[in-house]
């Protein structure tokens, strides 16, 4: 099987790289540059067609259809990503806002430099250090994310706190930095000065005028971080032995199980595209200057 995989490997990689893109132009150009020839293209088309119908092929290793594996893993990964997002979005924005309101004071420096430092660290490094602190020394949290069977919602949540923290730390820096610079720009703007000069209370100025404008770029950043988050999941799920899409792809890559590898990568490509689209939509809802549709 590995031999067979090795035989069709270049074509498989081509397909896997092509898979994630929604943009048909890019797919066509890439086809051309990669020199993917006709028969393989037909193969690719039929594979995509089957995928859209829910048939993701058969795993080389497990000798069973790929779809259940991918769907299970995607569900698990989404739980992990959701915990990380629910924690990081409000705290990251809050951190950025506090930093901006204390511009160039010690609190700002701590948040900015601290955020920058944890953002640049690889997830497995922060993961290891967090496991040592909370899992080994304090023994507050389990060091593996594999919860017992039939675990309820809160038990699962308890097991997910530690794995979500490294993702939290990386994202925190980005989100806080964007929120901070958005706030600084908004605080410096004419409409803020107008609002202050109108005699509005400071609290109202911040809530009604500054925050709404300041958070727009932050939303875009959060969406672009979905791509990063997927890469981070591969590492975190491996470190915590969590059965998610990242560890599924990782195992498939090591075992050269191409149907799973391709299906997994196409799936995260779709998730990425949906997240980007959702961010565009949210952006247009929040920003009165951009409206979807042509009638305005």
């Amino acid at each position: 099987m590995v031999f067979l995989g090795g035989q069709v490997l270049p074509g498989n990689v081509g397909r896997a790289i092509l898979g994630p893109f929604a943009d048909q132009r890019a797919v066509d150009t890439l086809n051309h540059t990669l020199g993917v020839d006709r028969p393989l293209l037909t193969q690719y088309a039929s594979w995509i067609w089957n995928f859209l119908q829910g048939d993701m092929g058969t795993s080389y290793i497990f000798r069973s259809p790929v779809a259940p594996f991918v769907i299970d893993a995607l569900g698990n990964s989404m739980k992990l990503a959701a915990v990380a997002f629910v924690l990081v979005v409000p705290i990251g924005i809050l951190g950025g806002v506090i930093a901006a309101l204390n511009l160039n004071r010690p609190l700002d420096r701590i948040i900015s430099l601290g955020g920058l430092s944890v953002t640049v660290l690889p997830e497995f490094v922060t993961g290891i250090i967090l496991i040592l602190i909370f899992g080994v020394w304090l023994r507050w949290l389990p060091i593996s994310a594999a919860w017992p069977r039939d675990a309820g919602f809160f038990t699962q949540l308890y097991y997910l706190i530690l794995p979500s923290l490294p993702l939290f730390l990386v994202l925190f820096g980005y989100i806080a930095r964007m929120a901070r610079s958005g706030m600084i720009e908004a605080l410096d703007s004419d409409y803020t000065r107008t609002a202050v000069l109108k005699g509005l209370p400071w609290r109202t100025v911040i809530w009604r005028h500054v925050l709404r404008n300041a958070l727009l770029p932050t939303i875009t950043v959060i969406a672009t971080q979905t791509g990063y988050l997927i890469g981070g999941l591969v590492v975190i799920e491996t470190l915590f032995r969590y059965q998610g899409i990242g560890s599924l792809i990782f195992t498939a890559a090591r075992g050269k199980d191409f149907p799973i590898l391709e299906a997994g990568i196409l799936t995260i490509g779709i998730v990425y595209a949906v997240a980007t689209l959702a961010a565009d939509f949210l952006y247009s809802v929040l920003n009165p200057r951009i409206r979807l549709g042509t009638d305005q």
């Binding site: 990689v13 896997a16 790289i17 890469g231 591969v234 792809i249 990782f250 590898l261 990568i265």
Partner: peptide
């Protein structure tokens, strides 16, 4: 595409 994924595919 995340770098980790590209790298994973290329290295495989």
């Amino acid at each position: 595409i995340p770098v980790v994924i590209v790298a994973l595919l290329a290295i495989v």
